[in-house]
Computed example of a mutant assay.
Amino acid sequence: MVVRTITEDVYSIGVIDWDRRLFDNLIPLPEGTSYNSYLVKGSLKTALIDTVDPSFEEEFIGNLVKARCDRIDAIIVNHAEQDHSGALPLILELFPSASIYCTEKCSDLLSALLDIPSDRIKIIKSGEKLDLGGVSLEFIEMPWVHWPETMVTYCPEKKILFPCDLFGAHHATSSLFMDDPCRTEILAKRYYAEIMMPFRNSIREYLEKISKMDISIIAPSHGPLYDSPPWILDKYSDWTSDKVQNIVLIPYVSMHGSTEKMVRMLTGLLMERGINVRPFNLTGSDSGLLAMELVDAATVVFGTPTVLFGPHPDMVSTAYLANLVKPKTRYATVIGSFGWGGKTVDTIKSLIPHIKAELLPPVYLKGAPGEKTLEELTTLADIIAEKHAQDPNITK
């Protein structure tokens, strides 16, 4: 790996994980990821901002050597999750005079996750600064930007914001700065949808504070850096807003074809009414792509057959995950078929309490769809079209 200069006295020394394809045994990583770490050298002190995943400790130490780093006085931990803090025990051993700077909640987590001794930790509060000599670091607490202990670090002299996971993207790339906006937008949106969307309201408040700061570079903990901060700030402003688009997302699974036929019927009916429709077959699907679709969809229609007494297990998982990420969806309903009974519709509703959407009348039938089903789906399409037309939060 290589050490790269961001600006004078500020270096990128993290590592790239080209081959990782799953994060937390949950999140697909189609293009790998990176664990970004930064070194800031002042005339008096040297600070390390975040570390890397413990599986890359050897490469990380190699980068410190390449950066000619013979001392570390301060280790800034913006966030305690192990992909950023996992190498801390080794760094503390190699640099016995170094102190960790983090929030009080982060201190508790570092003790629980990594058994970090409390005497190596300095608890900071928002607005506190660390003078490195000619350059300084300011700490700003931003709880519930992903975890409750999160903070960001700002270097006013270099106009660099180090926000850890905020504004990141799971993207293994050899480019230090974003050089492909289209590709980065997809991966950053995917990252937002999977990780940041549950904390949309908190992030929206913090965006106001960040937008007033004098920032030339945003250096997140995953993916490329942004040397044009308004680009990613504008994206987040849109994603965290209450605005949705004229889109109906239909995640579905079908066993014997009945539910799939209903999905195709509803898709056509909605298209005839000028609505953008996204049928999403859950069989073998990528949950990250589904999460991305949830960012903008005004309406979500869950399509599932009944298995014994309830929804198909794939739909149970999907509804549960959708509930976790808390999309700003305005309307939701259920369509599908059953053989002899069950409580599928009630079960789906019970799985999505955090989706603060208006629940529209379901279309759930016994057996295969026929003319009566088409009539009921036509009524549902009319209701959705009317809701979309009248809702001021839906961008037409």
Score class of each variant (00 low, 15 high):
D50C: 09
P220H: 15
E141G: 08
R264E: 14
P220I: 02
K45S: 11
E31G: 01
F60E: 08
K328M: 07
L22R: 06
P224M: 04
D115K: 04
P198V: 06
S43I: 03
P369H: 15
T5S: 09
M197W: 05
P313H: 08
I195R: 00
V300D: 14
Y191A: 09
W231E: 00
P313E: 10
H146F: 13
Y206P: 09
D131H: 14
F338K: 03
V10L: 11
M151E: 04
S287P: 01
E8I: 03
D131K: 12
H170A: 12
V363K: 00
L360S: 02
A193V: 02
E194W: 08
I383L: 10
F177R: 04
E31Q: 09
I140S: 09
M1K: 03
S337W: 03
T46P: 04
L88F: 01
E8H: 13
E376A: 14
Y320W: 15
P148V: 05
A389V: 08
P313V: 07
Y191V: 04
L207E: 12
L44Y: 14
R68A: 03
G42T: 04
L359E: 11
K356T: 06
S317Q: 05
A322S: 14
Y101M: 13
Q82C: 15
P230K: 10
M271T: 01
D119L: 03
V301Y: 04
P30E: 06
I160H: 05
G336E: 10
A298K: 06
V65P: 00
L22Y: 14
L166N: 07
K328Y: 15
I27N: 02
I100E: 12
R330H: 12
G133Y: 07
E260A: 13
F302Q: 05
E386C: 03
Y331Q: 02
N276H: 07
L308C: 10
D53C: 12
A80K: 05
S241W: 10
I13P: 04
N63I: 00
A87M: 06
T259W: 03
L380H: 05
I352E: 00
K122T: 13
A368F: 14
L88E: 02
D180S: 15
D286L: 01
K122Q: 06
H84C: 06
S237C: 09
G168T: 00
L29A: 15
T267Y: 03
V2Y: 12
M315F: 11
D234N: 13
A193E: 02
L109K: 07
P229G: 04
S241F: 10
D179A: 06
I116H: 15
Y192W: 14
A298W: 03
V248M: 01
L92V: 14
D24Y: 11
I348Q: 01
T318P: 05
Q390C: 13
W18I: 14
T267E: 13
R71W: 10
R21P: 10
A193L: 03
V135C: 02
S228V: 09
